[in-house]
Amino acid sequence: MLLEFRNIKKSYGSMTVLEIENISIDKGECIGLVGNNGAGKTTAFSLMLDLIKATEGQVLTKGQDVSVDESWKKYTSAFIDETFLVDFLTPNEYFEFVGGLNQWSKADVDEFLKQFAEFFNDEIIGARKYIRDLSKGNQKKVGIIAALIGTPEIVVLDEPFASLDPTSQIRLKKIITDRLDQHTFLISSHDLTHVADVSSRIIILEKGLVVMDNLKTEETVAKMTEYFAV
């Protein structure tokens, strides 16, 4: 087992925002985490990345508690929001920086980035602009691709489809599905179709609780669609 949420609970004062009894994730899965605003998706990811403190329970990667042992950082990558970007760097400098942290040379990074030329749509590579001056959508593209640098085993993407244009959304789905053999993905979204397209397993969160956790089949997709129908 690669990743496990074990009896995890996050409360602010008397309000519990997330309570997961158990979620176990194996290598090679592509988890689609869906839920409405405030369902606890980002909270779950933040706990997993040791960005916030769990009120109770643990998140374990390869059997190690992420809040105690830092070894998960070697094989985990994430893009949650702009605090994962270095806004005073140009996209190229940023990719090189992240590459450097993964012991990739500049040449490695350049070679790696070539395959995303279409996704970047000529607006990112070689752009003489700092990341802070890119559009939200382009910032997102930079963050997502940087999270793939170093071929990490676990890739966590929070709302990767939001603020991307329709063409880019489709291209991103292809990027993810093409790389399923290389990474274990955890992707959150409130866009049901995208999640249904890329993931192998769907977890629905509602007000901090897991209300559904099933492998993706036509049935579960139908169930999910029904669940969110008003």
Binding site: K73, S77, T83
Partner: peptide
């Protein structure tokens, strides 16, 4: 502070 989460998760250790 602007890119702190990146450092917390990307640097091998604090």
């Amino acid at each position: 502070s602007g890119h702190f989460d990146l450092l917390l998760t990307k640097m091998t250790s604090i």
